[in-house]
Design a protein around this nucleic acid. Sequence first.
RNA 1: GCGAGAGUGGCGGAAUUGGUAGACGCACCAGACUUAGGAUCUGGCGGCAUAGCCUUGGGGGUUCGAGUCCCCCCUCUCGCACCA
Length: 834
Amino acid sequence: MKYDPQAIEAKWQKHWTECGTFRTREDSDKQGYYCLEMFPYPSGNIHMGHVRNYSIGDVVARFKRMQGLNVLHPMGWDAFGLPAENAAIKNNTHPAKWTYANIDAMRAQLQRLGYSYDWEREVATCDPEYYRWEQLFFLRFLEKGLMYRKKAAQNWCPECNTVLANEQVIDGLCWRCDSKVEQKELTQWFARITDYADELLADLDTLQDGWPERVLSMQRNWIGKSIGAEIQFPLEGPDGKALDERITVFTTRQDTVFGASFMSLAPEHPLMERLIAGKEQEAAVRAFAEKTRNMDSTLRGSDAMEKEGVFTGAYCLNPFTGKRIPIWAANFVVADYGTGAVMGVPSHDARDFDFAAKYDLPVVMVIKPEGMDAIPAKMDAVSLEPGVMVNSGEFDGLSNEEGKIRIVEWLEKNGYGKRTVNWRLRDWNISRQRYWGAPIPVIYCDTCGMVPEKEENLPVRLPLDIKTRADGRSPLPDAPEFYECVCPQCGGKGRRETDTMDTFVESSWYFLRYADARNDKEPFAKAPVKKWLPANQYIGGVEHAILHLLYSRFFVKALRDCGFVDLDEPFANLLTQGMVLMDGAKMSKSKGNTVDPTEMIARYGADTVRLFCLFAAPPERDFDWTESGIEGSFRFINRVWRLAEELLGKVPAMRAASSTAADAATATARELRLKEHATIKKASADIAQKFQFNTAIAAVMELVNAMYLAKDELLADEGGQRVLASAFASTLTLLSPVIPHLCEELWQLSGMTSELVDEAWPAYRDDALVRDQVTVVVQVNGKLRGKIDVAADATREAIEKEALAEANVVKHLEGLTVRKVVVIPGKLVNVVAS
RNA sequence: GCGAGAGUGGCGGAAUUGGUAGACGCACCAGACUUAGGAUCUGGCGGCAUAGCCUUGGGGGUUCGAGUCCCCCCUCUCGCACCA
């Protein structure tokens, strides 16, 4: 009988659906296990990246199930977002229609792969039954001050016609369409993620064991905590005395403050106008500021940009010494980091050193490196070494680390500054000027100002009977049927907010909704969330290392503080799977190097596609899709199929349980039985400890190879047949999470009345792993010279004696004196001789 | 510059954590079966001057023994960055 994956897979998929095999039981007394994969954007077609992601997840889910856990394995759709709108415009349809059709198509594709999802918990974020809860969260966040509106320069993508969060601007370009991002002054809604900066950073330590170091480090970088001080430099008045007005700088090197020889301000600094007004430098500074402003933002942030500055004509005073310090406008000072002002210490900062050299500013050493005798009169290079404070008045002689603390104490005592922490993280702009998103539930009223929508009026529905605009701009501001409303406060005429929420808001909590997906009274009840979260395993691409994974962590903490959950972190363990490449490059439509999973399934079946995705490389690494590679996986599956056919015809004992030592009477039978148990041991460890599916599969391949070699001999007697049957049953069990359809079919053909999905994961028997003879390798001075077979329980002395007698060993010892013999029983002997 | 990860056959990748380097698969070669083989089965397959020698990016070191541990260097990938 030919292996017919299409028929087999259809049969079992139908069976699983009809029996509700993968429906998660809330009433089970088994321990729960939440296996979560990043939900897809419903583009209409799954790609190989999805197949890889979800195949990994499915093996984990099925494996944990077989280990006796009650598994929650849900799937849903990240269904709002721009592509739907763009596609709708292009194809003259509606985003909702397009999206729901895509969801249907992709659901069918995922089902065709045989994934063990509980489809009854499916969520689509564009469903009002989903986003109504998000609007509720928004209102509660608003109440708590975690959402707020502010006017500021924002990242604006002219192509997408919307603002972008900082996290969505990559090298000055839009993350989605690669257009150059512009700055635009707008009033926008922000989530106060910076309130959680400290906790988001600190809690990364609790994820140390479960998350990849790479992701932790990326998040640390992004949050960007730096500890230092704010120092206030009074401006110099016309009489040379200090004014009340001060320039505040942020520095991490307050210990070098005595070496400050210039002050540099961002050209956009708010004090700038005042400083230059009426001075002879005024025109020059203006021109410089203009030039800097017009500079390409990507160029301004690059190494290539020349560091330039212009003297403003104004001075400030060092609060420690009263020394005059010239104030410069400098193009390298970033207006929105720190305070937009930097004290220039050329002696101990590389950039300041270059700047001082260029404009001939003084360079004074204030930190003398350890081991240096005299303070050099002139510094010809920057010094970044730790050391002892010099030229620093009362602080002379302190180590610079001690100095940091003492300087801060002085600042705080004298009112010239304080210890401070500066963050790179900025609040999350969640407003989007697009149509296909969740409406922000607030109303603007001429009398009352901004008024939150009443909770009982949720959801604020996104109107579906509305035509999208050809230019991509949101139709909502032109849709009175949407924005015209009654002010919830005064009953007067109100106007709804027409911005929608960033789709990353939806994906920041979908994993909570899965725990209680059909609840229509509240976003989720507390009990199921407590039961299932944090998710035991989260699996997805590393491209979300910052965006989605940081937002979700923030969201959970904010929900916790609003009383919705009792949870600090959403994902206990994270696996970031590698990309699927083709000819060394990421598969992409523009490069034309894609492989369509649907086509591969039609040709080989889902099991083969799953097998190849898992076997080709360890999950976290990228792998190259190759035609011959998937052929190899198909060949292996056929090999298992043929082996089954052969055994089914000849082995009456296929139904037998695990073979016994008595069955394994011959050497070949003993070897195969040992191999069976060794394979169980290795495959279990590879999957359980490291999700190394590739080596687990390789081990089973070895077992199959061994069965091929042994079968003719073992088929001869009943004991041998039982050993074969047992090994084959183990093969099916071990492979079932990877290629479930084939295994289930062969299990049934073997006469089993149970189903493999309900079988327990096999356990190996220690006694089956015991050998009476073992091979020990013999080295002479670390070089392999021979092998000996000895009894497994042979003494060290016996092994040593045997080793020294081995012919090739004897030859290599000729003329040498044995100095030492290292014996590792069961492994090797190393004869040290000279 | 800072941070993280990685460098092993023609290729994807293994190596029980200091103990036979190259499991398993791909590609390739040979044999068997066959009317046929792009099917299947069996075997071979790092390199070389082949009783042996060399070999895990390069160079040192520790050790009876190093892909694995330590030091120095090189290359690549990713993230952050005139960040004060």
